[in-house]
Design a protein around this nucleic acid. Structure first.
Lengths: 339, 339
DNA sequence: GTTAGCACTCTCACTCGTTGAGTGCTAACC
DNA sequence: GGTTAGCACTCAACGAGTGAGAGTGCTAAC
């Protein structure tokens, strides 16, 4: 049974089949391999090898007289080789794609998702870990025309959130600054939860500026809510329509509807502790994604926390280039958010 | 030839056909009308009327033994009646859908697009008119941890933009406020263009805070760029997959790719001076949208300027409910942005 | 003016050959 | 023993042919 073990030639052939299938999305025949890929072997020999590879579980036939299609096990092997091969191919291009305006953490995340999806032509997902116990660092009111003011809350982690509130028209910039100072002094270092609680007490003391206090309370509540849950962003969701495996509208719709369920998305992305992770088909642990692959790369944000950037697409995916694009963006995110 | 003119009964039948077609997307037969809609007429009579309606150009037959399908002319009549019928049906629900967080103009726009698409289940597009000559109202630096500061620019129209810049760690909140005051004093009332020009001069005078000035210049440039062009946002783009007319992936892709071209989108939306506008098929003036309809409602923003909210979908569309949803959101937008 | 009845048309779904790609196997070859 | 040529075989994809069903148009009766 010597021929039923993997050898170098089998691996070469298998790789050629995977490459061709990734390219064409069509079952690959023995003739194709012997001609398009310079193996120096005839189609008959390739056929024998393919037959062995099928028995080994690396190939499958959609039907008897079609070519072969790589199995999940084949993708797994391919990816493992890719990952064990040490450093991923660098990809400065991908990084270049990601040089957008950067406003606050959320913007970084969405730009990253956009950049990845544009670059890879797949659907990109970026996830931010939840941040509990956010503490207020600064609280400031910026004057706006017509009795409005922009309330800005900055946390110790650098998260920014703001909202427009109405204030008495008699308050000028200096007055607003004085209020800001006072508020910052009292609220600095408090968690968002504490802020909400404290405002109840204050509102009795200083009835006049109830509007301001209410605005703060609302914004703090909103920030707390948002930061307490992991947040996740999708980019390029309709890129899947470019791939023949989704030429059935129903499939495309099923795919897109999963993307709208944040919980599922997060389940898809998070989990692994490794820097890179490729989950193929059922490995995603989600039945409805049984013929998709998820490639994720983690990035550092703050001390020890980490988020994930990922790509979701058909199992037939150029894992190498996707991984290198992802790790480029992951690196950029670590640089920007890691400190 | 009396029977070849439109009469009340023909209109009633036509309306029933349109309603049924909007509901089912299937050619409507005479029997269906005589049974599902309480006309008190037999299918044969309906058939005669349908034949007349076809001759009048309101109906078409995909093939001889299929039912009838409303023509563009029929939709046009239907919509015209709807519009001339005076006030649109109010739609408080739609307005409720649109009660989200509101940060700055852009956020309002995107929330509006989201709300409309979620409510109507069609693709929504919202457009903001360009705002030239934006003048600085306030400019403020908000302290952030670790030598960073949030630079906020507020314009006279209430547009807000911010960015994180690096500043000397020695500057505390009061120092930043002092700088903010100084900057506001000098730049208030200037247009964004002027601000950019003036900063060149300043940077020579006060070398120390070159970073701050550069940050301002960049942000001003960005604001100017963004506000000088009309901006447009899409929501619920993949809602079209819900409709059988797009069960062909190629059509869906063509549709989605138009949505990505901002210029085309703007051409689709803008134009009419009326408050409501329904363009059916070729009336959109865009060949690739020949079997889509575009429904737009305008809203006021600032003095005289107006933007548009719209829905894009198949010609078979419940124009009535779409219009009322749009005008509800349009009203809300006018309230929020109009002043 | 309205309706019942009937012949007619055309799509849709299904079946049935035909075609062609690709395999598996065997026998010859190096 | 490994490699290759040749050939029979299989099965999806395509096209033509067929029957059923939906819906019409027309005519004649009410």
């Amino acid at each position: 049974m010597a021929s039923h073990e993997m050898d170098a030639r089998k691996e070469r052939i298998l790789r050629a089949i995977i490459d061709d299938y990734i390219l064409t999305a069509m079952p690959v025949g023995s003739r194709t391999i012997s001609r398009k890929y310079e193996t120096g072997l005839s189609s008959a020999t390739i056929r024998n090898e393919m037959s062995d590879l099928e028995e080994l579980g690396y190939l499958a036939q959609p039907h008897v007289s079609a070519g072969r299609v790589p199995s999940l096990k084949a993708y797994r092997l391919y990816v493992d080789e890719l990952l064990s091969g040490g450093a991923l191919p660098q990809n400065p291009e991908a990084r270049e794609f990601f040089s957008r305006r950067v406003r606050q953490v959320e913007d970084v995340i969405t730009s990253a998702a956009q950049a990845i999806s544009e670059f890879t032509r797949y659907t990109a997902v970026v996830m931010m870990p939840k941040q509990l116990e956010l503490r207020v660092s600064t609280l400031q009111l910026v004057p706006m025309p017509r009795g409005a003011a922009l309330l800005v809350i900055v946390t110790d982690t650098g998260a920014i959130r703001d909202t427009v509130i109405h204030v008495s028209e008699s308050l000028d910039g200096d007055a607003l600054y004085a209020i800001s100072r006072m508020l910052t002094e009292r609220l600095q270092g408090r968690t968002l939860q504490e802020v909400q609680e404290m405002l109840g007490a204050y509102s009795r003391q200083m009835g006049g500026d109830a509007q301001v206090l209410q605005g703060i309370a609302e914004l703090a509540a909103q920030m707390a809510r948002q930061s307490a849950t992991d947040s996740v962003t999708v980019g390029g969701s309709h890129n899947i329509l470019n791939y023949p495996e989704y030429s059935d509208v129903e499939k495309a719709r099923a795919f897109l509807s999963v993307l709208e369920e944040k919980e599922k998305l997060m389940a898809l992305l998070s989990g692994p502790d490794e820097a890179c992770c490729v989950r193929i088909g059922p490995e995603t642990g989600m039945p409805e994604m049984a013929d998709c692959s998820v490639v994720t790369v983690s990035y550092q944000v703050g001390r020890g926390h980490h988020g994930y950037v990922g790509v979701i697409g058909p199992t037939r995916m150029p894992y190498g280039s996707v991984l290198s694009a992802l790790s480029a963006i992951g690196g950029a995110l670590t640089d920007m958010l890691g400190e």
